[in-house]
């Protein structure tokens, strides 16, 4: 099982009506690998994360997680569409952080971080709180644990959201343009936290980002998406230093000029 990648997209397609968002995607993400997905808007990059989090159903193909199919399950040696129960079991290995934070506004930072551990993992309240306190401390928000999201800055909210996702002990973390909704001066504190969990936790990380500098410094691999396909992928040095594809060059020039 351990020679299987942590995540495998096998001929995965996603269509909305006549519009093909992802066209027969094949992508493996290794254990502990940090992969950045870049590309113009509408290239399907966010859809990749949303399908993996099961927020979008796939139309074709099979999604594998940690050596097991997630969208399907094995029955008499054949892959059949997965039941909700099966999906929930596999989904427990994945955590996600959203562009718009999506904290629960009626719960404190602490409340946000213990809700799922208590109701899903069946943790005792004291245990969940202890662990949540550790995580809030790691993201630098010990002092804010009793604050409601509306009392926190965007950067602080996003750091709570990261702690909340980590509280479920995922093996895979998905970051969907997590700094795009932030004021520029708050981007740094969130990237700092992502760097830290990349170092301290044994996590597979997949991020959609517009922060080219961060993608370059942080990732093991960068995938450039264009019109629902991986147009080019490679090490940050290759993609940013010597892109082979014309589209990649154009995109990077446009982004770097704007930045």
């Amino acid at each position: 099982m351990n020679d299987m990648p942590m995540v495998r997209f096998e001929n995965v397609s996603k269509r909305y009506g006549a519009l093909t968002v992802l066209d027969s995607l094949n992508l493996d993400i290794g254990r502990g690998e940090k992969v950045s997905i870049i590309g113009p808007s509408g290239s399907g990059k966010t859809t990749v994360l949303r399908m993996l989090m099961t927020l979008e159903a796939i139309n074709d193909g099979v999604l594998w997680v940690d050596g097991e199919p997630m969208t399907h399950m094995l029955q008499n040696g054949k892959l059949v569409p997965a039941t909700t129960k099966h999906i929930r079991r596999i989904r427990a290995k994945i955590g996600m952080v959203f562009q718009s934070f999506n904290l629960f506004p009626h719960m404190t930072a602490m409340g946000n971080c213990i809700e799922a551990p208590i109701t899903v993992l069946g943790m005792k309240r004291s245990e969940a709180e202890e662990r949540a306190a550790e995580l809030l401390n790691m993201v630098g928000l010990s002092a804010k644990k009793d604050h409601y999201p509306s009392q926190l800055s965007g950067g602080q909210q996003q750091r709570v959201a990261i702690a909340r996702a980590l509280a479920m002990r995922p093996k895979i973390m998905l970051f969907d343009e997590v700094t795009s909704a932030l004021d520029p001066e708050l981007v740094g504190e969130v990237l700092q936290v992502i760097r830290k969990i990349g170092r301290e936790h044994d996590l597979t990380m997949l991020m959609v980002t517009h922060q080219m500098g961060f993608a370059k410094e942080f990732s093991d691999r960068v995938c450039f998406f264009y019109q629902g396909k991986i147009c080019e992928q490679g090490s940050p040095a290759e993609i940013f230093g010597n892109p082979k594809n014309e589209r990649t060059r154009q995109f990077l020039n446009a982004v770097l000029e704007a930045g």
């Binding site: 927020l55 989904r91 904290l103 629960f104 809700e115 899903v120 996702a165």
Partner: peptide, 9 residues
């Protein structure tokens, strides 16, 4: 979506 991501029932 956050509830799904946290695997809440």
């Amino acid at each position: 979506e956050a509830s799904i991501a946290l695997n809440l029932s």
